[in-house]
């Protein structure tokens, strides 16, 4: 029983890790807290929904399309909007992101109504068992995809020219500029990548849970929890944070009841900020 709960937590934790990956990248590189992150996850989920219900494309295939669409949206928003205020004080970018969040989620509300929708894949209910532990295929698939995407992120950041310019810009903006990095473009790519990852998370979310236009707010907050829990600016922080939150939530809701899920996440958030502000993997100064 306990093992099953922990496995469930780990599987959901993989999805949390993917949610936080994009937010962590954007935050670490540009010092922007992307409050609209959850709204982008929602957009990814709706992309998947429409590809599935209109064209009958399986979510695990339309994933690539969703990521591409979200990448373009993210790139454009950074290039033509956020770059305009990037050097203002932090709460200017925070409120701008809030404005974007309000705009996107209400646009979705107007276009697609507040109805809760579901992507019902044929293999949604099938699962397999190892001993007494039951594992649904869809959840395991989502977990594996989340880890693969995290791996791709790792590769892009460490092994490519784009990754080098992203890391250079995050270390020292002016120095990066001096050695010829197009900072505005790098920022836009970074934001695009982060939002693309949110799109992937949205796709996987839609396979596992019901979706609606207002789902983003709580997901943004959970992404914070994961980023902070793992430690900002660490490569594996989101994964460690995601799995920790997933398991903590699974155990917590088992002991206290499902209505306490949010209370548990946000209490963890505040406690970690106070006692462990560098996160689990973060180095102390």
């Amino acid at each position: 029983m306990l093992l099953q709960i922990i496995i469930n937590g780990i599987l959901k934790g993989g999805l949390y890790a993917l949610m936080a990956l994009g937010m962590s990248l954007i935050w670490g590189v540009m010092d922007i807290i992307n409050i609209a992150h959850g709204a982008f996850i929602m957009l990814g989920a709706y992309c998947t929904y429409w590809f599935f219900s209109l064209l009958g494309i399986d979510p695990f295939i339309s994933l690539f399309l969703s990521v591409a669409i979200l990448f373009v949206i993210g790139y454009a928003i950074q290039r033509y909007l956020i770059n305009l205020v990037i050097r203002a004080t932090i709460f200017i970018t925070l409120i701008l992101a809030f404005g974007i969040e309000i705009f996107i989620s209400n646009l979705a509300l107007v276009m697609w109504s507040a109805n809760v929708r579901m992507v019902q894949v044929p293999y949604g209910a099938s699962n397999f068992s190892i001993g007494s532990v039951t594992i649904p295929y869809a959840r395991l698939g989502a977990f594996i995809i989340a880890l693969i995407i995290a791996g791709i992120f790792y590769y892009i950041l460490n092994k490519t020219r784009l990754g080098r310019s992203i890391r250079a810009t995050s270390q020292d903006l002016d120095a990066a500029r001096l050695v010829g990095v197009d900072v505005a473009k790098t920022y836009s790519f970074t934001f695009g990548l982060g939002v693309g990852a949110a799109g992937a998370a949205g796709t996987l979310w839609a396979v596992l849970f019901p979706i609606n236009p207002m789902m983003g707010g709580v997901l943004t907050l959970k992404s914070f929890v994961v980023v902070i829990l793992g430690g900002l600016g660490t490569m594996f922080g989101p994964i460690v944070g995601g799995l920790t939150l997933g398991v903590a939530e699974a155990l917590g809701t088992n002991w206290f009841g499902a209505t306490y899920e949010n209370l548990i996440s946000f209490t963890i958030l505040v406690l970690v900020l106070i006692f462990l502000p560098k996160g689990i993997l973060g180095k102390s100064e």
Partner: peptide, 24 residues
């Protein structure tokens, strides 16, 4: 004791935690 973004997010978390608490 927190600064910048960390203070912003911590206060946001406090508000959400209080909402969840009053809810229960």
């Amino acid at each position: 004791r927190l600064k910048g973004h960390y203070f912003a997010i911590a206060t946001l978390g406090v508000a959400e935690a209080m909402k969840a608490l009053v809810d229960n």
